[in-house]
């Protein structure tokens, strides 16, 4: 149907990146929270699959809002 096109290429899908483990550690330290306190995302999520994130990875989502760019973190969980 869409052939090779991926969801991440769509202009409405914000930037998803896998955070390296050290970076994820830093985020956890910054927010003084254990991994369990972070929002979740299913490993069945098409974008998670496309960027190849594994269960336990932290994903950084950069969104452009009307006022500013903002960052959101999610942790991949098994569905």
């Amino acid at each position: 149907m869409l052939g090779e096109k991926k969801h991440i290429d769509h202009f409405l899908v914000p930037l998803h990146e896998i955070l390296p483990k050290e970076e994820a550690e830093k985020v956890m330290v910054f927010y003084k929270s254990p991994l369990t306190a972070f929002p979740k995302i299913n490993d069945s999520d098409p974008i998670v699959k496309q960027i190849g994130a594994q269960v336990g990875d932290m994903i950084k989502i950069t969104r452009k809002d009307a006022t500013c760019e903002n960052v959101y973190y999610r942790v991949v969980y098994e569905k």
């Binding site: 003084k32 369990t36 972070f38 500013c68």
Partner: peptide, 22 residues
């Protein structure tokens, strides 16, 4: 105080209030 929004369990809902902290 770090501008994050959390519920009573300490689970993060928003990293910056309203996305821009404004």
């Amino acid at each position: 105080s770090d501008r994050s929004v959390r519920d009573s369990r300490g689970v993060l809902i928003q990293y910056t209030f309203g996305g821009d902290g404004a």
